[in-house]
C-alpha cells in the first residue's frame, strides 16, 4: 500500500517537474524571440521547411475533410434543403474547427517529430554544446527560428486549408451529388463569417506554437542516445496532439462566449 502511494506520489511530482521545466523553457524561448541577434538565414529556412513543405500534407487533409463532410451531409438533408445546408455545414465546420485542428494534428506529426528528432540528435552528439562553445546561443540559433515559423506559418497553412476544404466539398456536391454549382458558391459566401475564419486562424497560431515549442523542448532536453531521441520524438507528437485538442476546447469556449 505504501509502495503504491509512493509510486503515485513520485509520478505526480515528476509531472509537476516536467510542467515546471516546460514553463521555464517556453518563457526563455519566447523572450529570445524579441531579443537580437536574429539568425535570418535559419528563420527563412524554417519558414520553408515548416510552412511550404507541409503544404501537401495539409492540402490533402483539407480536401478529403471537405469532401467527406459534403458526402455525410447529403444523407441527412432532403432534396430541397441540401443545396444550402451542405455548403453551410462544410464552410462552418472547416473554418471553425476541422481546418485548424486536423491541419495542426498532421503538422504535429510531420514537423513536431522532425524538430524533436533533429534537436535530440544534436543534443546527444554534443552539437548543441558545440554551438555554445562557438559563442552562439542555441536558443536563438535553433529554437527561435522554429517557434517563429510555427507561429506565423500555421495560420497561413490553415487559411489555405480552409480554401481547399471548401473546394473539396464543392467537388463532391457538384460532381458526385449533382447539385447546382452556383448555389453552392453563393451559399458558401453567405455563411462565410469573418469571425469564424479569424477564430480558426488564432487557433492555428496557438497550435503552431504548441507544436514547435514541444518539439524543441523534447529534443533540446533529450538524454541517452538513440533511445532517448526516440522517446523525445514520441513525446513531442503525443503531448502536442493532446495539448492541441485541450486548447481547442478552451479557445472554442472563449470565442463562443464573446
Amino acid at each position: 500500500m505504501i509502495d503504491f502511494l509512493s509510486t503515485i506520489g513520485r509520478r505526480v511530482l515528476g509531472l509537476f517537474a516536467i510542467a515546471g521545466r516546460l514553463a521555464l523553457f517556453v518563457a526563455r524561448a519566447l523572450s529570445h524571440c524579441f531579443r537580437p541577434p536574429f539568425y535570418f538565414r535559419n528563420i527563412v529556412q524554417q519558414f520553408w521547411t515548416i510552412g511550404y513543405n507541409s503544404l501537401p500534407v495539409v492540402g490533402l487533409t483539407a480536401v478529403f475533410t471537405g469532401a467527406v463532410l459534403a458526402l455525410q451531409a447529403s444523407v441527412g438533408f432532403s432534396k430541397l434543403t441540401a443545396p444550402s445546408a451542405i455548403p453551410m455545414l462544410v464552410v462552418v465546420s472547416v473554418t471553425r474547427e476541422l481546418g485548424p485542428v486536423l491541419a495542426s494534428l498532421m503538422v504535429a506529426g510531420r514537423v513536431g517529430a522532425a524538430i524533436a528528432a533533429e534537436l535530440g540528435t544534436m543534443r546527444v552528439t554534443e552539437q548543441i554544446d558545440a554551438l555554445e562553445t562557438l559563442a552562439t546561443n542555441p536558443m536563438k540559433y535553433l529554437v527561435v527560428p522554429r517557434v517563429l515559423a510555427g507561429l506565423l506559418m500555421m495560420p497561413l497553412l490553415v487559411l489555405i486549408a480552409d480554401v481547399i476544404g471548401v473546394m473539396g466539398g464543392f467537388v463532391v456536391s457538384s460532381f458526385i451529388l449533382n447539385l447546382n454549382e452556383s448555389a453552392y458558391l453563393i451559399n458558401t459566401i453567405n455563411y462565410l463569417h469573418t469571425r469564424d475564419v479569424v477564430s480558426g486562424l488564432v487557433k492555428a497560431a496557438v497550435f503552431g506554437l504548441i507544436i514547435t515549442l514541444l518539439g524543441c523542448f523534447n529534443g533540446y532536453n533529450s538524454r541517452g542516445g538513440a533511445q532517448g531521441v526516440g522517446a523525445a520524438t514520441t513525446n513531442a507528437v503525443v503531448y502536442a496532439s493532446v495539448l492541441i485538442l485541450f486548447f481547442d476546447y478552451f479557445l472554442t469556449e472563449l470565442f463562443l462566449t464573446q
Partner: peptide
C-alpha cells in the same frame, strides 16, 4: 569534441 560534433 569527442565525436567531432560537426553541424550536419
Amino acid at each position: 569534441f569527442q565525436g567531432g560534433a560537426l553541424f550536419d
